[in-house]
Write a protein that binds this DNA or RNA. Structure first.
Length: 354
DNA sequence: AAATCGTGGCC
DNA sequence: TGGCCAAGATT
């Protein structure tokens, strides 16, 4: 027990010297903390920072965010990934504006009920904004604690979560939970890194079980992941019209906009001038016009081979696409819609100059 | 409980 | 360069 307290004090001492200056740390404004936490879920600070400023600039208060159109929120989120976060951000803003008079609830269970706020984010807000003693258990926490105590449980298993939570509570005993939670994050990100941590100059060298046993690379325990899938994605565009469709299947890029396309698990032959494809369950004979463009897009669980095919525009296609839920937009208006990343690349490279 | 959801950076 | 990982949540 006293040893754990010693670890907390070392982390806090390190934090006082090396704390990162981040805009949501200037005060204890729960709106800023919440916004930053949602943006930073599975996202590095350097990647999220421009988005944080864009949101704060456009929506200085949670009521401003709540009264915005969902489309505006998606548009600001474009390029950040995990777009359900944008949807949940807007939902929670509306709930807090209407049911809580614009003020965040101060309890962990109430925070947990809000869309997009899970166990980690609820603990982060509860501790950083309201000083409550909840361990913020993110990837940083699991890495530092997993190594310090050689935790032989997966962080995503039921027993693992309980064990980590118990260790987190012990670390928070008798210290400022806002500071300690953030100290662990900054320490993990700067010093106790996933690969090649510089253990030789680590202030916790004599307390780290993994270092003492030479097992730093074993912790935190790795979770087994599924093999990556390969998919072939075929997009179509025409010279004078931009067709887009609102994705409403509950799959990747849900609620964003897309160009006419189909996905295949096998490559198809695009060397023919005429292409027989299935577009939303309707057979379509397409006459190609010009060479295809090719992109490769890597996701965590899928590798997309993307072919962009220019086709002739004619009345038959107009009719077919309209019946499949597509509609035409003016090229200069495309920025009003939120597209997945491969399509943003495509628009930038090929359509913006139309 | 395990699968799914994006994108960028790093080596 | 392909795999790993990042302030996880949801179903």
């Amino acid at each position: 027990m006293t040893k754990i307290h010693e670890i907390s004090n070392i982390l806090l001492g390190w934090y006082r010297l090396h704390k990162r200056e981040l805009p949501w740390r200037d005060d204890r404004d729960p709106y800023k903390i919440w916004l930053s936490e949602i943006i930073l879920q599975q996202t590095r600070v350097q990647q999220g920072l421009p988005y944080y400023w864009a949101f704060i600039h456009k929506f200085p208060t949670i009521k401003a965010l709540a009264s915005a159109d969902l489309a505006e929120v998606y548009n600001l989120w474009q390029g950040l990934g995990y777009y359900s976060r944008a949807n949940n951000l807007h939902k929670t803003a509306k709930i807090i504006a209407s049911q809580y008079n614009g003020l965040f609830p101060h309890s962990y269970p109430d925070l947990l009920k809000l869309p997009g706020i899970g166990p980690y984010t609820a603990a982060a807000i509860a501790s950083m904004a309201f000083g409550l003693k909840y361990p913020a258990m993110d990837g940083n926490f699991f890495r530092v604690v997993g190594r310090l105590f050689e935790v032989d449980e997966q962080s995503n298993s039921t027993t693992g979560k309980k064990l980590y939570h118990k260790l987190g509570e012990l670390l928070l005993e008798g210290v400022d939970s806002a500071d300690l939670n953030q100290a662990i994050m900054d320490f993990a990100s700067a010093r106790c890194t996933p690969t090649a941590p510089n253990c030789d100059s680590c202030p916790l060298i004599s307390h780290c079980q993994a270092f003492l046993n030479g097992s730093v690379n074993k912790y935190p325990l790795k979770t087994i992941k599924n093999p990556k899938k390969v998919q072939y994605l075929y997009f179509f565009y025409t010279e004078n019209k931009i067709w887009i469709r609102h994705r409403n299947k509950n799959t990747i890029w849900n609620n964003l906009f897309e160009f006419p396309n189909f996905i295949s698990s096998d490559p198809i032959d695009i060397s023919n001038k005429y292409l027989q494809v299935k577009l939303y369950e309707k057979d379509l004979l397409i006459e190609l016009d010009g060479n295809p463009h090719y992109l490769k897009h890597h996701l965590t669980h899928i590798t997309f081979h993307i072919y962009i095919l220019k086709i002739f525009s004619n009345f038959a296609m107009d009719k077919l696409w309209k019946t499949n839920g597509f509609f035409v937009i003016n090229p200069k208006d495309y920025k009003n819609y939120a597209f997945p990343k491969p399509l943003v690349d495509f628009i930038t490279n090929h359509l913006y100059h139309v």
